[in-house]
Amino acid sequence: MNIDLPGFSDPVHDAQACFRAVLDAMSRPGTVRAAGAGLLPPAPLAPATAAVLLTLVDGETPLGMAPLFQPAADWISFHCGALVPADAGRAAFVLATALPDLSMAAQGSDDRPEDSATIILQVASLAGPSRFRLAGPGIQSHAILAVGGLPADFVARWARNQRLFPRGVDLILCAGDRLAALPRGIRVSEV
């Protein structure tokens, strides 16, 4: 059991700080923000990934989880208040280290596009080596997302998701104690 490992040392204010980091990242795609510094979650959770879970996931949000994260399930369950496992199609949040098939996750409907999954993707790095050009709401002229650990065909797979707008999934990218986000409406191209 790894529930002995602590969660947020100050649950109210740490969750608020992490939420603001996610909000800022989601509002300004390409922006990288600090999250979860000081957290010591069980492997394989990175501090930022753990912080996002503690901030957004609870007993009301079915969580789809890649098997790789099973060793951290008890910790998530304990510190998030509950863990409601769900298959990819019903999950509000999907936790993964490899980009899952986006079309298998909940996309929302035309009249309830918010009923869509948020994918929390733990990646190798938010400093490269891949670089993507971003355009869309939240971006003043252009933005660059530098990331390591996305599949080679990411641009094409994301474009299929983006074309579904207003339906589609949103992505939170976590690496170490940093995070970035890609909301569904953002257009991504190779630099």
Partner: peptide, 25 residues
Amino acid sequence: FAYLDEQTKRMIRRAILKAVAIPGH
């Protein structure tokens, strides 16, 4: 802190993030 319980804040925060992802909806 700020009156609302944490469970309620999480629910509102999730709604805010979806709102940001679907501008104007």
